[in-house]
């Protein structure tokens, strides 16, 4: 019996080793360990073994069964590995990728989102207002003189109703303040319209971001600190920022802000990027007069506005503003 077991063992191990694929290995397993398998058959013959030999034969059988199982497992791993390797042989990974439809955001959205992200981190909440505005919110509230050139149908789009397309997102300053008590800390990205003929640097409809902070004792230093932080976050920590005195009816003092940028191979240049200033007290008076509450008397604040088309053009060296409204995929794809 023992000899028989030893010879079955040798044959089984050889059969396992010779199995060339999963199927042959499975056949070998059935042949050895299956219901009618050789080892199974021998095991059934143990009944006829003399009692005193039984422990030794039993031990031998167990040892052989373990050896067969180990061999089966090992061979299985070997064959799987070989099959895995086979599955990638001849695959050309230099082939081009399968073409999926790609897409992307418009460059104006990209700059707007970036600016909005920075400003929200600085504690500004979003606000908005209508694009079809009345003269009060667009001009009167913002201290624009009665006979200011902008209040002219050659410069501003009017409707027969007497309303107009807002010429700046600053209208939202008035909209927010008449609805809300101070403190106010808002930004408003949105469209504005001016009756400019469309050319390489002008669009009659364009995008801005307006910002307003009103509270007790807001000063020029806050305006400066806030906008310097914002512009450095936008253009890089090392970017020089300067404020030039300017004039807007709704702020006093007013400033234009330049950032110093350097294109490769060129001398650094100051580039005008935004307008800002301390809210003109006349604006607060106009709001208080309209609402009949004196919520804003004794308040100070600053406001700023930044053109998004200009921002995109500076950032990516876009020479013709019209590219931004043509939506040619060859242009858009450069931003995806």
């Amino acid at each position: 019996m023992k000899e028989q077991i030893v010879s079955v063992r040798a044959a089984a191990l050889e059969e396992i080793l010779n199995a060339q694929d999963m199927k042959q290995l499975e056949n070998a397993r059935v042949h050895i360990l299956g219901k009618k398998g050789e080892l199974t058959r021998i095991q059934q013959g143990i009944r006829d073994v003399p009692r005193e030999e039984k422990p030794a034969v039993g031990a031998l059988l167990n040892e052989v069964r373990a050896a067969v199982n180990t061999a089966l497992d090992r061979r299985l791993v070997e064959l799987q590995q070989a099959a895995d390797e086979q599955s990638v042989s001849g695959v050309d990974i230099t082939l081009p990728g399968e073409t999926l439809p790609n897409g992307g955001l418009h460059p104006i959205s990209l700059v707007r989102e970036e600016a909005v992200r920075i400003l929200r981190r600085m504690g500004f909440a979003l606000a908005d207002g209508p694009e079809i505005e009345d003269e009060w919110h667009c001009f009167d509230a913002l201290n624009t003189p009665e006979d200011h050139p902008a209040r002219n149908e050659r410069d501003t789009f009017y409707f027969d109703s007497g309303k107009l397309l807002r010429t700046q997102t600053s209208t939202v300053q008035a909209r927010v303040m008449e609805q809300q008590a101070p403190p106010v800390r808002i930004i408003c990205p949105g469209s504005a319209f001016r009756r400019d003929a469309i050319d390489a640097t002008h669009l009659s409809a364009f995008n801005q971001i307006e910002g307003l902070y009103v509270d007790k004792e807001v000063g020029v230093g806050d305006l400066k600190g806030t906008l310097e932080y914002f512009l450095k976050a936008l253009f890089g920590e090392e970017t020089p920022v300067r404020f030039r005195p300017h004039f807007f009816p709704f702020t006093e003092p007013s400033f234009e802000i330049d950032v110093q940028l350097q294109a490769t191979g060129q001398a650094p240049r100051w580039i005008e990027i935004a307008g800002c200033g301390m809210v003109n007290p006349a604006v607060f008076e106009n709001i208080d007069e309209k609402t009949g509450k004196s919520l804003y008397s004794g308040c100070t604040g600053f406001a700023f506005g930044i053109g998004l088309e200009r921002l995109a053009m500076i950032r990516w060296g876009i020479r013709d503003i019209r590219l931004l409204i043509e939506n040619d995929v060859r242009f858009l794809a450069q931003f995806s």
């Binding site: 909005v116 929200r120 600085m122 504690g123 500004f124 909440a125 979003l126 606000a127 908005d128 403190p183 800390r185 808002i186 509270d215 807001v218 000063g219 020029v220 230093g221 806050d222 400066k224 600190g225 806030t226 310097e228 932080y229 300067r242 404020f243 005195p245 003092p253 400033f255």
Partner: peptide, 23 residues
């Protein structure tokens, strides 16, 4: 000269607005 006025950075906690959520 505004360059001679020191910059300050003040902020306040601002509640999220309906427009924030819409955005």
């Amino acid at each position: 000269g505004i360059s001679n006025i020191p910059a300050t950075r003040t902020s306040i906690y601002t509640a999220e607005s309906a427009q924030d959520r819409a955005h």
